[in-house]
Amino acid sequence: MNSFFKYFSDIFHGVKSLLIGMSVTGRYFFSPGQIVTQQYPENRKNLQMFERFKGEVIMLHDENNLHRCNGCGICENNCPNGSIEVIPARITGEDGKSKRIIDKHIYHLGMCTFCGLCVKNCPSNALGFGQEFEHAVFDRSKLTKVLNKTGSSIIKGVE
């Protein structure tokens, strides 16, 4: 008799649990307001990444095309992947002394793991993270970038 009861209570509990499960999916089916999908790329225009988002490493330039990098090479030493190559140059400054400046700050995006060490360790805070994230290109060589813009120079007084 006991097993007889168990048979029916099993059926009852089974059906009940199934109905509870169906009520969850059913409820979501009828509540389209809960849809969480983001419509990328339609929302590209107003897609706002978080300010700290690590899209790529950039060199910060101000409106006069000035940056703060003096070519010390600390970022290169700190990068675990060798994705930064600093090529310094020497110029003679106004005071006649020979001075080190950055010639090319080369950044291999394809090798970067966004660890943030270069940005953190740069003594003059010349680097930062950009928000750009659409990095797909057809040619790998395009992932190698020169971070200091052409014609840019160092802000006075940073060296």
């Binding site: 999916t25 979501y28 089916f29 809960q34 849809i35 999908t37 419509q39």
Partner: peptide, 10 residues
């Protein structure tokens, strides 16, 4: 479509 709606998708 139905399964997408059940899963909060479009």
């Amino acid at each position: 479509k139905v399964c997408a709606f059940m899963q909060n998708r479009v």
